[in-house]
């Protein structure tokens, strides 16, 4: 269980997050949604200890992110950042392999190699595994980064807009795979998503942020609702139904 307690954050005078408290259940997919500038990425990076907490506390299964040694946390949670400024020239296999670093500390064993091969297979990267990261497309790079985070085999995986740069085929296939893994009950995902229909179709729970505060925390049925979405995004959105699935028509 992830527990977030009274977290506020500001850069200079601008308040990014204001007194966020919530708990995220184990196993399953939790989607983090909200308009631009709502504080989603900041919340995620605070959860992943990439920035120090200013106020409040965050813990994963009782391990506080500000007090647990960072190398221990690297076995509990992994993050995929949105603005990945990764410029290292590395083969995709090596890059994915570095996801194993928290486990092998520079001395990979047969188990680590096996995990890397599995991740490459799972994310369809085997054919291009020898190519350098600066020689593949944006979507392929994104998949390699997801595979790297996946390879870290942490119980919690925080993904900041993992569908960035992915075409429809790979976006859907990534979400299906995450759903598959979540259904085994071994791993939990917190995913920042911009497309609320993906959130509605694949998440167990949705957390909506607006202007740095918690707007809604509920099931997809609670959130994919005309009034709720219109208030959240300050725009006209109609929610309709296709077979059993709620669909937000936000593009019309």
């Amino acid at each position: 269980m992830i527990e977030i307690n009274g977290v506020s954050h500001s850069y200079g005078k601008s308040k990014i997050l204001q007194n966020i408290s919530l708990s995220i259940k184990e196993s399953g997919i939790t989607a983090l949604i909200g308009p631009n500038g709502a504080g989603k990425s900041t919340l995620l990076s605070l959860m992943a200890r990439l920035q120090p907490l200013q106020t409040g506390s965050i813990s994963f299964d009782g391990q506080s992110v500000s007090q647990t040694p960072t190398r221990e946390l690297a076995k509990t949670l992994a993050i995929l950042r949105q603005d990945n400024a990764l410029s290292s020239r590395m083969s995709l296999r090596d890059l994915v392999g570095f996801g194993r670093y928290p486990h092998h500390k520079g001395r990979p064993t047969a188990k680590d190699h096996k995990a890397v091969e599995e991740a490459l297979d799972y994310f369809d990267l085997q054919d291009m595994s020898g190519r350098f990261i600066d020689e593949v497309s944006g979507g392929q790079k994104q998949r390699a980064l997801v595979a790297m985070a996946f390879c870290q085999e942490t119980k919690y995986l925080l993904l900041d807009e993992p569908l960035n740069n992915l075409d429809m085929y790979y976006a859907r296939s990534l979400m299906k795979r995450l759903r598959e893994i979540a259904d085994t009950g071994k791993r939990s995902f917190v995913i920042v998503l911009h497309d609320i229909n993906y959130a509605g179709a694949y998440a167990n729970e949705i957390i909506a942020l607006k202007d740095g505060t918690l707007a809604i925390h509920g099931t997809p049925q609670d959130v994919l609702e005309t009034n709720a979405l219109q208030t959240l995004y300050s725009m006209k959105i109609t929610v309709t139904q296709h077979q059993d699935q709620l669909i937000a028509l936000h593009h019309l």
Partner: peptide, 22 residues
């Protein structure tokens, strides 16, 4: 001997923290 750690540092501060490096 510590080559991997320098490689990870080269991937940036966020990546280093994420992989549990001080």
């Amino acid at each position: 001997v510590v080559a991997d750690q320098f490689t990870i540092i080269g991937m940036g501060k966020d990546a280093s923290i994420n992989l549990g490096l001080n």
